[in-house]
Amino acid sequence: MLTSTGVVILVLIFAFAAFLLALPAMLGRREQRRRAAAGDGPDGPDDGGARLEEQLASSRQPFRRMRDRWRARRLDDDTWDDLEETLLLADVGVPTTTEILDALRARARREGVRDADALTPLLEAEITASLDHEDRTLHHRPGQPSVWLLVGVNGVGKTTTAAKLARRERDAGRRVLLVAADTFRAAAAEQLAAWGAMLDVDVVRGHEGGDPASVVFDAVQSARARGIDVVVVDTAGRLHTQRNLMEELAKVRRIVERFDGALAEVLLVLDATTGQNGLVQAREFTSAVGVTGVVLAKLDGTAKGGIALAVERELDAPVKLVGVGESADDLVTFEPARFAAALIG
């Protein structure tokens, strides 16, 4: 078995040796390329690009357009192709799309559906039904601070979501503490502190480059002493492929677990514009820190957030909240029926 040191050395030498041995060949190839570049290059793009652009510009509401096309049309292969394309355009992804279509096909056959139009309510019902988690509430721990960890990749909106959550809880009459455990991104703590001042919520912060786990430990300890109800922890964004950073996050979770039962939620923030990579994010964060719920942020654009369908299908954790705007009160509970309607509408 290779040790990690072994792997590093092996990789190094390999990289290095390959480089040395291949250098003459590579240089030769580059010369070739230079000559090729001087001569005739590949043909420029044809005008297909412009047509495509037109198509796309008019595709902002794919489902609506689809239904227009379906009016007074018989259900046929084209309808199904249309449906597949539009679900894919909403980022639902191939496996989930196939699953939905198969279920829908079976049902259409069973019920003898003949008109394309009649598919719409069935599709909506199918999507709603597939979002079948019952409990989408955020959990509290009576008699002690409930710690909510916010996790996710860079730039999905964790800090903004933390502020929105703090406002929601504060408005519900609970005592809230915000914790800036993002000690990596420059000025991340300042960003949260600015929100805290706006919302009149206390913010605990560590210094840049500090250990996030120790910031969280101190925060939860002081929350206990001060009788805080909800501790919202904003962690640094990290790509799920960076093992060290994921390990750092697991450590934060373990620290919170030292306070018996305090860990109430681990919320994964997903950007609604995310494509199929969202599924990998959900998988990796779940295996590292046990995600208990998903927040679908930035659903106020034209993105449909179809990845949420795939994520719910794959994970045990439900989508709990959606972010639908920039202000602090634009965070609402996820409702499958409304989501399905919006996805199709």
Binding site: L56, T274, N277, T302, G306
Partner: peptide, 8 residues
């Protein structure tokens, strides 16, 4: 990581 929305 953007999905289909990128072109829009």
């Amino acid at each position: 990581m953007t999905g289909q929305e990128a072109v829009a």
